[in-house]
Design a protein around this nucleic acid. Structure first.
Length: 483
RNA sequence: UCCCCGAUAGCUCAAUGGUAGAGCGGCCGGCUGUUAACCGGCAGGUUAUAGGUUCGAGUCCUAUUCGGGGAGCCA
């Protein structure tokens, strides 16, 4: 490749489609992109309408190519969906008032071979089919919009925390601490799997492995980020996370992205406020920055999406003790048929969470203070009798939103070493394994709290997309790592 | 991992155990400042794979693979 891309900011007639759509009438322009559709007319001695898109915005721009162009009959009249072209011309107005390009030249850069078998046709496709064409689905309206919103959301996340004085901490992808708790992990090893080194007693000799011990891909950056929280006060991580669970649902991935803020000198209420502000900030960001894509999602993916999001912005999230939530569900069980029984001390099932956020409150709900036996060791033990609960609770919260369910899980962390040790003992976890985590409680411990937001679940919530595999470019799930 | 459903043309789907079809897309032509265009014609098939039942299987049976929905786990 010898050709270089001129910077878009230097004087040039090469405009991105998003710019060409706003350029003044009469401007000379060049656009470079791919054909969405071609329509022909015999009017004015013959002409073709070429809808050209380059991914810079939802709408393509229409180029009008007349039959007197030298390559009209030989090339232009045969262009099909997703042929790559460069169009030189002048900005003009369509009869309806929008911008179009009166083409002076149409250069064919790349043709589509076998157009009758090209998978992406100018017609509705099912999500299932496009999932099998992950290398081509980025060219569709839907996945172009998903990609742009995903980018917008990523930037908004960093902006939200940066504006509030948080520091972005790069927590490790590979972890050898083996004490992260949550879920099955992917092993990271350089040992020859067909010829594993053994110890004298026949076990695999992990000391011979790359890190001198067992290592895995991270399932959470939380424990690591807590160390920086207890030094920089407000921090967050935003990176990939891996779970080797055999989950086959529309809401789970083996590789997904998670945002985990952690705040010092803070309790659960402050954590909940941060979570609510965060979600509302993200809604505002996509509504204002990607209005074109959000309009498409509202019209074609989920009718009423924009209204649903605006409703979320208007009201404060409903904060509710777990104990209260159970009372509502026990009462509801008299009229609504739940598949699983509900009682205090049990974790809520998906159907219960959906009932609270979709039927009872019809808005996001923050459930707080869960029974300690269903939550992790690091969550702070509440004073006995908090919320009138019949048993011990911890300062945990789940944020539930309509149509997605649990989108955030968080807690105030146990900062008291003696209580933490007691919890480790209760759950048969080794204090030695957690030595550095315990050190944070020995040297200048402070109340702190944080949460994890599933990035792809936020995408589903914001776009109305129904399957998590369609809001990430290349989904990884059990038995699925193509592309 | 468990339960349920499915796999037929490039795509979306039809086809009582008896000649494998339509719409869209593609190609050719007609019409048209078109924009989910419209009209006519043509091409396009190892019915997921492997067995079995039957005179005869896209259809019935078994296994496998892949996909979807739900559940569990969670974000």
């Amino acid at each position: 490749m010898t050709a270089t891309l001129p910077p878009m900011t230097t004087p040039s007639t090469w405009l991105r489609v998003v710019e060409a759509l706003r350029a003044p009438e009469g401007s000379p322009v060049t656009v470079k992109g791919w054909l969405r559709t071609r329509r022909d007319s015999k009017a004015d001695g013959g002409l073709s309408f070429l809808a050209v898109h380059d991914g810079t915005c939802f709408d393509p721009i229409q180029a009008v190519a007349k039959a007197d162009l030298p390559n009209y009959a030989s090339e232009i009249a045969h262009l099909t969906t997703h042929c790559a072209v460069e169009v030189d011309g002048v900005i003009a107005k369509t009869p309806k008032g929008g911008n179009e390009i009166q083409a002076r030249a149409v250069r064919v850069v790349g043709l589509v071979e076998n157009p009758d078998h090209y998978p992406i046709q100018p017609k509705p496709h099912t999500m299932e089919f496009l999932r099998e064409q992950a290398h081509l689905r980025s060219r569709t309206n839907t996945f172009g919009a998903v990609a742009r919103v995903r980018h917008c959301l990523s930037m908004a996340i960093h902006r939200f925390y940066h504006e509030r004085g948080f520091f972005y901490v790069h927590t490790p992808i590979i972890t050898a601490s083996d004490c992260e708790g949550a879920g099955q992990m992917f092993r990271v090893s350089t040992l020859d799997q067909l010829n594993l080194p053994k110890t004298p007693d026949g076990a695999v000799d992990h000391a011979k492995d790359f890190f001198g011990k067992q290592a895995h891909l991270t399932v959470s950056g939380q424990l690591n980020v807590e160390t920086y929280c207890c030094a920089l006060s407000r921090v967050y991580t935003f990176g990939p996370t891996f779970r080797a669970e055999n989950s086959n649902t529309s809401r789970h991935l083996a590789e997904f992205w998670m945002i985990e803020p952690e705040i010092a000198f803070a309790d659960l209420a402050a954590d909940a406020t941060l979570a609510e502000d965060f979600i509302k900030y993200l809604i505002n960001a996509v509504l204002t920055e990607r209005a074109d894509d959000m309009k498409f999602f509202d019209e074609r993916i989920e009718k009423g999406l924009l209204q649903r999001l605006k409703d979320v912005l208007e009201k404060p999230f409903r904060r509710l003790p777990y104990t209260e939530g159970v009372k509502i569900l026990v009462d509801a069980a008299k009229r609504t048929k739940f598949e699983y029984p509900i009682e205090w001390g049990k974790d809520l099932q998906s159907e219960h969470e959906r009932y609270l956020t979709e039927q009872h409150f019809k808005q996001p709900v923050i459930l707080m203070n869960y029974p300690k036996q269903i939550k992790a060791f690091y969550m702070r033990l509440n004073a006995p009798g908090t919320d009138g609960a019949p048993g011990d609770t911890v300062a945990a919260m789940d944020v539930l939103v309509p149509s997605v369910g649990e989108i955030i899980g968080g807690s105030q962390r146990e900062e008291r070493l003696s209580v933490l040790d007691q919890r480790l003992d209760e759950m048969n976890l080794s204090k030695a394994d957690y030595w550095w985590y315990r050190d944070l409680r020995r040297y200048g411990t402070v109340p702190h709290a944080g949460f994890g937001l599933g990035f792809e679940r936020a995408m589903m919530f914001l776009t109305g997309m129904q399957n998590v595999r369609d809001v990430i470019p290349f989904p990884r799930a059990p038995g699925q790592a193509d592309f």
